[in-house]
Design a protein around this nucleic acid. Structure first.
Length: 207
DNA sequence: TGCCTGATTGCCT
DNA sequence: GGCAATCAGGCAA
């Protein structure tokens, strides 16, 4: 395990009950929280500034739409674990599984503000700029070394955890990015004014 | 079995 | 703004 940087609070992770709520509530609640991964090559952490909610079997944009099969199986487990999938042949993305077992709700982590382990993240990313470390779902997964082995990991564990943190002063709501169905569902949440979000809302909805 | 597309990123013009 | 990289899953044949 990596050494503990002094600026990561040694708090206990958010309780299970935080995740056993409606997915949209968990999504909004995750903004400002701190994701920590204590990996073999060191510890890194970032403050969550952008998320998207995916609503399970009734959401055509969700991998869970076709039921608990294949890569979506983990999304149907009890909330409070990570669901990691591989896409575009080269990127990993991380979901936070929500609600009770069988619900299939999940929150895609889309951007973090780097907090700890900055040099480690730079090495993993091959990029220097702070903004390039976590401003996108594939980027943050790479910066935090989240990949296949982390699929299904408990977020209340020692390797991977989510700590409390100051919520944003204001939250913007917009349409989800990179999908082709249910594109008008307002399920993307970003910290207003953050320089670390992946991109601006497409024209619409600063609400 | 084979083809196509994707909850993306980075490099190119 | 366009497009390639690269592979797992979905669906047609």
């Amino acid at each position: 395990m990596g050494k503990q940087p002094s600026n990561v609070p040694r708090e206990s992770p958010l309780p299970r009950a935080f995740y056993l709520r409606p997915t949209v509530e968990v999504a909004r609640g995750l903004l400002g929280k701190v994701l920590v991964h204590d990996a073999a090559d060191g510890l890194a952490a970032g403050r969550i500034v952008e998320v998207e909610a995916y609503l399970g079997e009734q959401d055509p944009a969700s991998h869970a739409y076709r039921g608990p099969r294949g890569r979506a199986e983990v999304m149907f487990r009890r909330g409070g674990i990570a669901s990691v999938y591989f896409t575009y042949g080269m990127h990993f993305c991380m979901n936070v599984v929500c609600e009770r077992a069988g619900a299939g709700g999940a929150v895609l982590l889309r951007a973090i503000e780097p907090l700890a382990g900055l040099d480690l993240m730079r090495r993993r990313r091959g990029r220097e700029g702070l903004r390039d470390l976590g401003s996108g779902p594939g980027k943050l997964a790479q910066a935090l070394a989240i990949a296949r082995p982390e699929n299904g990991l408990d977020l209340l564990g020692s390797r991977l955890r989510v700590l409390d943190g100051p919520p944003p002063a204001a939250i913007d709501v917009s349409e989800r990015i990179g999908i082709k169905t249910a594109t008008d569902w307002p399920l993307r949440f970003t910290e207003r004014g953050s320089a670390f979000v992946s991109r601006r809302a497409r024209g619409a909805g600063e609400a």
